[in-house]
Design a protein around this nucleic acid. Sequence first.
RNA 1: GCCGGGGUGGCGGAACUGGUAGACGCGCCGGACUCAAAAUCCGGUUCUGGCAACAGAGUGCGAGUUCGAUUCUCGCUCCCGGCACCA
Length: 863
Amino acid sequence: MQESYDPAEVETSVQERWEQGRCFEAREDAEGEPFYCLSMFPYPSGKLHMGHVRNYTIGDVIARFQRMQGRSVLQPMGWDAFGLPAENAAIANGVPPARWTRQNIEQMRTQLKRLGFAYDWSRELATCDPEYYRWEQWLFVRLLKKGLVYRKLATVNWDPVDQTVLANEQVIDGRGWRSGAVVERREMPQWFLRITDYADELLEALDGLDGWPDQVRAMQRNWIGRSEGVELDFVGASGETLTVYTTRPDTLMGVTYVALAPEHPWVARLAGVDPELAAFVDDCRRRGVAEADLATMEKLGRALGIDVTHPLSGEAVPVWVANFVLMEYGTGAVMSVPAHDERDHAFARQYGLPIRQVIEPADGSDWDIAAEAFTGYGRLTASGTFSGLSSEEAFGAIAEALEARGLGRRRRNYRLRDWGISRQRYWGCPIPVIHCEHCGAVPVPESELPVVLPEDVVPDGSGSPLVRMPAFHEAVCPQCGSPSRRETDTFDTFFESSWYYARYGSADNHEAMLDSRADHWLPVDQYVGGVEHAVLHLLYARFFHKLLRDEGLLQSDEPFTRLLTQGMVIAPTFYRERADGGRDWINPAAVEVTRAEDGSTEARERETGAPVRPGGMEKMSKSKNNGVDPQALIERYGADTARLFTMFAAPPDLSLEWSDSGVEGAHRFLKRLWRQVYECRCTRSTPMRADPDRLGDAGRGLRRKLHETIAKVTDDVGRRQTFNTAIAACMELLNEVSRLSPDEPESAALRRECLTDLVLMLAPIVPHVCQVLWESLGHHGLVADAAWPGVDKAALVAEEITLAVQVNGKLRAQIQVPADASREAVEAAAQADANVQRHVAGARVVKVIVVPGRLVNLVARPS
RNA sequence: GCCGGGGUGGCGGAACUGGUAGACGCGCCGGACUCAAAAUCCGGUUCUGGCAACAGAGUGCGAGUUCGAUUCUCGCUCCCGGCACCA
């Protein structure tokens, strides 16, 4: 063992041993209960960023911890390789997305290996590989035949200049990112997956996912948005019906107008003969398709000049078109009750529509309905025979009245919409369909799969190159043999990421999508990834799992038993104002921040000394130029320091703030640990463990601290997953070990015992350095395969404990009492304390609260 | 706008089930070592008053429940994530 810690040397040699021993290849016939630990696979964007380092370190720590607990661990890695950035890079640099992606994968794989993650690389997969995506084409065809796939019109962002469909992120302030043209909404036929068929199961199974954060389950529940309501019909002048859905039938008598989505068929019909209406609808088309845009834009509408008949009162109700009504949700038409809905209220006031109150607060209080909508439940008023009923009673009564007239029925509705899986993109998995003039959309026969994406292609930003490639899209109808056109749309990339976790179990199977080995590992015991995936990716993956189960490919109902959603990595930003008002962002590594005596800070560019302005803490990103390159960090301090810092600086679910001096602190800790072991090893004849019976007071105290630490770290890593507090506990223990006097009996042996257990506890987090220290402490083999230390309950027993004494809830003293002292003895000791007596003098103690092992609170009243 | 999360010393954070607020780390201050510096080691460090003992205040803001609230309830505020074609 060297005297000083040299991370580069340690890490190279330890990684070589892992690689040569193929230590982390998982085998189905291995001993121990299987444990499948999975981190969300990365998009190969080029270089690893700090978010990756954090994500994969968390997963690796859990995997290595479980391995030390005797589990047979599978921890695989792969590449979410299809996606928009590859096309953007192609537009910018003229490189085919396939080449760009594969180069990035090479580079990022090297970086992941340098970080020492215990991956089974033999199962690596990339979703752009035809051997991978052929199986989702195969599954798509099965789902199509089963009726779970269908085609319908859907709205996309259309760039009229580039003649292409834009992603939401390519729409900036309503304009195309490259052309600057005002983006339009356009309807296109697209493929959909019937996720709504599984809505109830996806919703109800959330209750059983107790290994998931409550916030993620709440977000999915809201996303699915199941509601119980009533569907009812308003009848038009010529007898046609206008169907609306409402969750508030109790407010039905307060309807003063009906609002339709601009895409509603009634609107289209009237727009044909009303140029002004057509102009309005046209205007509505010049908007993005994102929900946030719709929700925040100015609410606009127009009267259509027609009336419909209220199903119960028979009154005439005017029909409007409104830009905020969604065609995708419900029936594309809503009954508007301005008195009891905020948005309807605002709209009614804007256009001078009547507001009719039909619900009053149940407590009889007054409500100024002209000023504000009353959206709560209450008692019905001005509602004919329903007046006086509660909202709850009225729900049933009105639903029955509508049913009796054949003008309504109870209905369950979902906010969740079917999953649109078509993308007008090149770099994705081709949708295996051939469009035939005679036979319609025909699936590609299984024998002709996969439909391979041509790879030597450079997109230019004006629509998918596949559309302009006859060699790709010219096809023959598999049914009738006539010349046909191959589908040129590709799958949403969420398609690939919805089943990759299962494929790792059968990655080398070229005959089937999945085999029984997938069930050996599934469900994933621990899934780790960014909270930004809380709804979409995680919901789609759950849905796919159920599809695969119903195809007989998997046994389990849910893919991920336990979920950890990690926070972002953020860093300070600095900028300089440009003459044109724009901002030049300066990387924080190039900025020096100094603190003046008055506490104010000043930031200057290191090289030029020019002042720069702080822009606050932001997620590390290219656009704010505040990324810290993991590569530079590893070169300077080593992978173990990078791992230690990211695990120590914050709990995994909160955002992690970058700090150079924090990194140095982490590095210092490793150097301290190294030195303690180095100095310990110097006495060769030391026993491995101390004899508890021969320890003095200080030794017994340290040994108690050791076992308290083992208990805490085991709980922090295994149950709470608060790795930062586990590391803090290890730091405390090391501090105490270094304070132990060499004159204590058994001190050398106790030191060795403590350091051995410390190395074991830190091994999942900083595996390289711990491997070397493990052997320096006289142990053999891989620390990664060693058993996790156990707690000696006998060592935890203390003779004396410290209790806090409060008077009226304020801390007044600390007292030492025997650990087994009775309540009476504790009370007496508390009352006897001089400072306590001072504070109860002149008062009467009316109550004494004793929290065993913690505190005593004397409640005193003036006498 | 809707849904979800967060706000605690100079900074990152800890306090797990309502029970001693500030563990651990960073930074800073003082000391040791050194010709000196770096590195390392030791001590101190929420604020205010006090030599000290100790006292008062204090967990975004305002109320409430409780012997006791960072923790529970209500109202507000600011910051962050998601919102279906970024992944």
